[in-house]
């Protein structure tokens, strides 16, 4: 998982996990969210997802949430994470605008 923080470009996996966590989800729900929104194009292995979640927790872009009683750990995006996601959205919008100007459509 290499996210270029300065340039703002996120990996697809990182961006999708951040998007998934605008509402709290546990690991399995994140995986389902990504599979469903990409119609199965992007299917994450559990080991890869685990590594990605831990790296995002470390960066404090996401955090654990909910009471500890629930057996399944849930995660949610932080305000720092939202900032990162918004920056990425703007970057992608700019990019598609430039691309549309050149390619058309």
């Amino acid at each position: 998982m290499r996210d270029n923080v300065k340039g703002g470009a996120l990996t697809e996996v990182t961006f999708f996990i951040l998007l998934a966590l605008y509402t709290p989800k546990h690991g399995y729900a994140i995986m389902q969210f990504i599979e469903e929104t990409t119609s199965g194009r992007l299917s994450l292995g559990a080991g890869t997802l685990y590594g990605a979640i831990n790296s995002l927790l470390e960066k404090e872009w996401i955090e654990p949430c909910g009471d500890a009683d629930g057996r399944k750990k849930e995660y949610v995006i932080t305000s720092k994470g939202k900032e990162v996601a918004e920056t990425e959205l703007k970057r992608l919008k700019d990019l598609t605008e430039i691309a549309s100007g050149i390619i058309g459509g």
């Binding site: 299917s43 559990a46 890869t48």
Partner: peptide, 23 residues
């Protein structure tokens, strides 16, 4: 050792190339 109920889809734990290289 990880066991999954077989639903006909491939079962991989590591899927992105970056993660596979790390693994």
């Amino acid at each position: 050792i990880v066991e999954k109920k077989n639903d006909g889809t491939p079962f991989e734990l590591h899927t992105t190339n970056t993660d596979k290289a790390n693994y």
